[in-house]
């Protein structure tokens, strides 16, 4: 996998936790708040376009507000890291297809995946009146990672990945159709 971490700039977003606390003063746990708000910043504020192989530094993405999955993953992971959340990149493909997809992942921050999922659902219900359903997560390096895909409705929501065949569902279980590589941010 390409070393996407070279484009990350968490230091440029050192203000992020303070600004989120200003706008969302009440919600606890704070790390769940940061995770969800950062996800919404990317989802609502950044457009998608095929931008080619060049990946802009994360700070430039806040100027452009548009980019492909590589550009967006670098941006959201920079913000996650600035907020004290661990992030990662996952490369997935559809068998037989030349194109692939880069998915951002964020480590569940509470040390209890069930509690993390419960709190994410609580955040969306209390702040947006949205009932979050299934939350998809995977295990890498002995940790639980929540999928933060920009084409989805909330962290862990992976409807678009299912629709596009990156994920295969089988009853209550699922798997990546073709998993390529995982890269944890430093």
């Amino acid at each position: 996998m390409r070393d996407y971490t070279q484009f990350m700039e968490p230091g440029s977003f050192s203000f992020i936790t303070q600004r989120i606390d200003d706008e969302f003063p009440r919600f606890q746990p704070r790390k769940i708040k940061y995770l969800c708000v950062i996800f919404e910043i990317l989802r609502q504020g950044v457009d998608y376009h095929k931008s080619g192989r060049k990946v802009p530094p994360a700070s430039q993405m806040m100027d452009r507000l548009s980019g492909d999955c590589e550009d967006q993953s670098v941006l959201i992971n920079s913000m996650f890291e600035a907020a004290g959340l661990n992030s990662g990149f996952l490369e997935v493909k559809i068998p037989g297809h030349s194109t692939g997809h880069l998915v951002s992942l964020v480590e569940e921050p509470l040390g209890d995946i069930n509690e993390t999922c419960r709190q994410i659902r609580r955040f969306y219900l209390e702040n947006y009146n949205i009932t979050a359903g299934d939350i998809y997560y995977d295990q890498f390096n002995g940790k639980n990672w929540i999928i933060a895909d920009n084409f989805s409705d909330y962290p862990g929501h992976s409807k678009a990945l299912v629709n596009e065949d990156y994920i295969k569902e089988n009853g209550s279980t699922w798997r990546w159709n073709e998993f390529k590589e995982f890269l944890e941010s430093p």
Partner: peptide, 23 residues
């Protein structure tokens, strides 16, 4: 380390603020 466009950031953050959806 690049400088972030804070005006853009603040504008987006304002968009994602909690709202009374029903209202």
């Amino acid at each position: 380390m690049g400088r972030v466009n804070k005006a853009n950031f603040d504008e987006i953050l304002d968009q994602v603020k909690p709202v009374d959806t029903t209202q």
